[in-house]
């Protein structure tokens, strides 16, 4: 008896990684794999990888980040939606903020890069609730190119 496991068009990948630099490559790889599944071009896959890495780096560089980063990659019919949140924020004081100017400037650069590479970006960074960033990249049709 043959049974297909692909009953739905929806492809959803959820990944929890420790909020540490050495794990960001895994988040990049996961997002790239989902983007590849819905036939993004190589260039667009690279854009997604960079955007995910920037989002993870923004979490990690925040001085009051949580223990984990939760990544959700959702393959829609004509787009990829990626959500990056930090979690495990136990006992983190309300007064957060970035430690130094150099890091703040780099973090701002990261958000700028994300906005440049992705089609839709919404994010909220709060010392108490953490980082919650959702970004969408639409699949290019031949007429778009």
């Amino acid at each position: 008896m043959t049974q297909s496991v692909e009953h739905s068009n929806l492809e959803l990948v959820e990944l929890r990684i420790p909020a540490r630099p050495e794990w960001v490559a895994l988040a990049r790889l996961a997002a790239a794999t989902v983007a590849n599944r819905i036939h993004f071009s190589l260039e667009d896959i690279e854009d997604v990888k960079i955007a995910v890495a920037e989002a993870c780096a923004a979490v990690i560089q925040h001085d009051a980040h949580g223990e984990f980063i939760d990544l959700t990659c959702e393959a829609l019919e004509d787009a990829l939606r990626v959500r990056v949140r930090d979690s495990g924020r136990h006992g983190i004081p309300a007064a957060g903020g970035v430690v130094n100017f150099e890091e703040a400037r780099t973090a701002g650069l990261g958000i700028f890069v994300i906005r440049s590479l992705m089609d839709e970006v919404t994010y909220d960074v709060d010392a108490r609730s953490g980082t919650d960033l959702t970004m969408v990249k639409r699949l290019q049709t031949p007429s778009d190119v």
Binding site: K49, E54, A57, E102, R105, T106, L109, G110, V113
Partner: peptide, 9 residues
């Protein structure tokens, strides 16, 4: 093969 904003920084 790859550079992000931390590398640019």
């Amino acid at each position: 093969r790859y550079i992000d904003s931390t590398g640019l920084g």
